[in-house]
Design a protein around this nucleic acid. Structure first.
Length: 323
DNA sequence: CGCTGTCAAGACGAA
DNA sequence: TTCGTCTTGACAGCG
């Protein structure tokens, strides 16, 4: 019987004033005459973001949630090229350790999803360089928290540049230029426009990368609609080298017209259909709920699932099917 | 205080 | 080749 564990993304609709993504724009930062004072301000905001992340993890624990995506914007301007000699780790080390200790002591799975400006298959050297900088930033955060850094960052493949085959090849070429520790930090996800599940599996199998399957993206972008027969077993296989359970992204389309947009909540029927389809195929599947209403969407989904009689609950966010 | 505009990034399609 | 759009949360500034 497969265990299904639910998590959510970065911020809470329930906990007030708990943004982990407060920031300063570079334009604003550059207006300060005293650069040291300005950097201290950035550190203050970063520590507030990390403190709010700790608050969110405490809220999660109280709610029985042990799977969470941290904001990638914890440290404002950390990866900005004008601040490339800034040692931001020094000022946030203590808070980061506190965050990591809490997550580790409570056996939580946390990871990151750097935004889509990390493009490993870019044909521009500058973009690749910036992408590596962003990955190194995530590596430092994970290490600062005391985490095993393996398979903690979900990425998309990137752009197609008018030639998808060539752009897939370029991903492989650029991948070889990454350090092993950055390679091992990465998971790859199918996207809703360019690289479908088959494309991502090709890369994941060739390069030994765990694949995060996004069901909603698959519905928006596929050549083989039947993911269960076409891809599922291969997706599970990409996780064999990982210590972490298979990871999924779950969201629902906002509307037929805006199909690719995320809805406020999760359609329970679609989720149950997915879960029952994969039940028994693997020990555990971690499902990241990506909905506009964040944790409230998770709570609503759980409430609806709890009205079903054929589920057994391990805690308030984890269940399996009864035989 | 609340609304509108601005910011940041890269891809991509239109003009 | 340049520009606008997409996307997202949060900040800045106006009234």
């Amino acid at each position: 019987m497969t265990v299904f564990r639910l998590g959510y993304v970065a911020m809470s609709k329930h906990v007030k004033n708990s943004s982990p993504s407060q920031t300063v724009t570079y334009k604003n930062f550059s207006h300060y005459a005293d650069q040291e004072a300005a950097k201290n301000k950035l550190i203050t905001i970063a520590n507030s973001n990390i403190e709010n992340s700790i608050r969110l993890l405490k809220h999660n624990k109280a709610s029985g949630i042990f799977f969470f995506r941290l904001s990638s914007r914890l440290v404002p301007l950390a990866t900005h090229e004008e601040l490339n000699d800034w040692n931001y780790m020094k000022g946030i080390k203590a808070k980061l350790e506190e965050l990591g200790d809490f997550a580790i002591n409570n056996e939580m799975r946390v990871d990151f999803h750097p935004d889509h400006f990390v493009v490993l298959n870019s044909d521009r050297e500058e973009i690749l360089k910036n992408s590596v900088t962003v990955l190194q930033y995530h590596y430092k955060l994970l290490t600062g928290m005391g985490f095993d850094t393996k398979h903690r960052c979900v990425l998309h493949v990137g752009g197609t540049y008018g030639d998808k085959e060539r752009s897939l090849e370029r991903f492989i070429e650029n991948w070889a230029r990454l350090s092993v520790r950055l390679q091992q930090m990465i998971m790859l996800e199918n996207d809703d426009k360019s690289y479908n599940a088959g494309d991502v599996l090709f890369l994941c199998e060739k390069l030994g990368i765990p694949m995060v399957f996004d069901l909603h993206h698959h519905q928006a972008n596929h050549t083989q609609p039947n993911w269960l027969d076409s891809y599922w077993e291969r997706i599970v296989d990409t996780w064999r080298s990982s210590d972490l359970p298979v990871k999924m992204h779950i969201s629902s389309p906002k509307s037929d017209k805006q199909f690719r947009h995320h809805a406020d909540y999760i359609d329970m029927k679609t989720f149950v259909e997915f879960a029952s389809n994969v039940d028994g195929s693997v020990d555990q599947v971690d499902c990241m709920i990506e909905a506009k209403q964040k944790d409230e969407a998770l709570f609503k989904l759980v409430e609806e699932l709890k009205s079903l009689s054929h589920l057994e609950w391990i805690n308030d966010s984890t269940f399996r099917f009864l035989r």
